[in-house]
Amino acid sequence: MAKPENEITWRDLEVGIVVNEPGNASVYCTGDWRSQRPVYATERCIKCGTCYIYCPDMAIKILRDGYIEHDLYYCKGCGICAQECPTGAITMVEEEE
């Protein structure tokens, strides 16, 4: 996306309002919706990937070594990863902490 939406003129729009930058919504930060953040304890992680598969916001990355990383740019803080983690390796803490 070249311009912020309040600067887009009618001339900037594609024919038929087609959006021809696939997946450009990934510039949009949903991380600031969060009131709780996930805290990840590597030592308890068994690398099962359960958190990864259940994340509705694609905010968990599986690293090459099998451990995971939260992408706080997108994480909305829903807490599914903490709830579903079989070993309690993820806990949710208040964002202001």
Binding site: E5, W10, L13, G16, I17, V18, V19, N20, P22
Partner: peptide, 23 residues
């Protein structure tokens, strides 16, 4: 060329979309 057609138009862009169509 995976385009998105028929995207949702929030108020900040809907008028521009209609202007483009009218033009």
């Amino acid at each position: 060329n995976p385009v998105t057609m028929g995207a949702f138009g929030p108020p900040i862009l809907f008028t521009e979309a209609k202007k483009a169509q009218d033009e």
